[in-house]
Design a protein around this nucleic acid. Structure first.
Lengths: 96, 96
DNA sequence: AAAAGTACTTTGATATTCAAAGTAAAATGA
DNA sequence: TCATTTTACTTTGAATATCAAAGTACTTTT
């Protein structure tokens, strides 16, 4: 068992790390909000949310607000658990 | 300025994160030691150390121990500084 | 009604990651 | 001693990931 064993590769990327961080403290965030918070381009954000969705770490819900499409993201129970594990592993790794 | 602005993409990968973590607490580590600590394959470790060397975050020294080649790695001043910055940014991001 | 904007998705070129295979010398065994 | 295995890496190139430009399907503004 290596020292990076509990570092989750799904969170290796800063944009995915950012998405999860946002979704740990906010029940929901929509595409626009994430895009602004992370300074990501559209295509870029779409692919990272897709990656997290594929792992079932986030839930994607499409709805209309007024007449406009709106996609909102939330962390799943699994996502929150895995992210916490990842953070713990990170802390163990870097904290001495 | 986004919330992931000070997250350094050079440290986005868990193996590079692991290498730096080891080199923050050990003055030196050699190839074998890193390989074992990180559970990385040879080629994999070689490419990640190369990436960190290219950024001048680590120093690579080739020598012979007895009659065997030995490559040892150490964090540069720049590498340590950037890693600390990265950790601070991480903590800010995830710690609320 | 045309033009511009919003909210994404698709595309495909570029970059990164990975382990298998390669290299060269040392250690082991017959 | 000479072949075989092991050690310590490096090289290679296929697989995967990343990225932003372009595309889609509207809505809003002029």
């Amino acid at each position: 068992m290596s020292i990076i064993n509990n570092i989750n590769k799904a969170f290796d990327h800063r944009i995915r790390l950012g998405i999860m961080s946002v979704l740990m403290v906010n029940d929901y965030a929509d595409f626009k909000m994430l895009k602004e918070l992370l300074g990501a381009t559209d295509g870029n954000l779409a692919s990272h949310t897709k990656a997290l969705e594929k792992e079932e770490y986030i839930l994607v819900e499409k709805q209309f607000i007024g007449r406009k499409p709106n996609t909102r993201y939330s962390a799943t129970k699994l996502g929150k658990l895995q992210f916490k594990k990842h953070i713990n592993a990170l802390e163990k790794l870097i904290g001495k």
